[in-house]
């Protein structure tokens, strides 16, 4: 839930006041620690940075982006990118431009998640210490991502090969079984098939949409019937 003081700022013109920057910054920190997420507040902060570049704090920007990764496939990561300086995705020329480098690294992660390349996502995350630094502030980052990948899986499948899922969520052995049973509440059969309960999305039922007839459509007809001389 969004705290009241944040809701008040968002509802009024205070959201443009550079002095609220620090309030939003603390709020981002709080989201990182408490595993919560508030997209609108974070976008408002990025907008303040957009208008007042001298107030920009690189670390807060990357934390916002990391939090946005944890809600994929929602478009939040892209929405944040749209508010960053236009040159942020340009190939960096100077070593000094650490923000651009960090943002581009996170963009790579986002693209991997969005395109379903989960194994590559974990490999990339492990490939560079910079990634570890970037996600360090976000408590439970790996688990949040795992849950999202599990949700994507449950959306499409009722049964999935254990090896495949192990690769996707980057877990093996007992840890894997624990996650699947406790967090996802799925079952494992014969040791190598993960069974996912039926939900709205993974059933693939053929439907026929029938037309919806409203009485209003007959109003002309009824009127005509009245007007007709008996």
């Amino acid at each position: 839930m969004r705290p009241e003081y944040i809701a008040n700022i968002l509802a009024g013109l205070e959201r443009y006041n550079p002095e609220t920057t620090s309030i939003f910054q603390d709020y981002v920190q709080q989201q990182c620690e408490s595993r919560t997420y508030d997209c609108y507040a974070n976008l408002a902060l990025l907008k303040l940075y957009q208008f007042n570049p001298h107030l920009t704090k690189d670390e807060t920007i990357t934390n916002i982006l990391v939090k946005a990764l944890t809600v994929f496939p929602a478009p939040d990561f892209s929405l944040c990118l749209h508010l960053l300086p236009p040159n942020i995705l340009l190939p960096t020329t100077s070593a000094a431009d650490t923000l651009a480098e960090a943002v581009q690294k996170l963009h790579t992660l986002s693209i991997l998640l969005e395109s379903g390349q989960y194994k590559e996502f974990w490999a990339t995350l492990d490939s560079d210490d910079l990634y570890a630094d970037l996600v360090a502030d976000c408590v439970g980052f790996e688990e949040l991502i795992r849950v999202r990948i599990a949700m994507a899986t449950a959306q499409a499948a009722r049964e999935v090969d254990r090896k495949v899922l192990e690769g996707w969520i980057n877990m093996e052995g007992e840890d894997f079984e624990g996650f699947v049973r406790e967090v996802c509440q799925w079952t494992i059969e014969d040791g190598d098939r993960v069974i996912i309960p039926v939900n709205n999305d993974n059933e693939a039922k053929t439907t026929v949409t029938r037309e919806n007839v409203k009485f209003d459509q007959f109003s002309r007809l009824v009127k005509r019937a009245y007007e007709q001389p008996a």
Partner: peptide
């Protein structure tokens, strides 16, 4: 993977 993306 692409099927998952298609679904999303």
């Amino acid at each position: 993977s692409q099927l998952l993306v298609f679904k999303q």
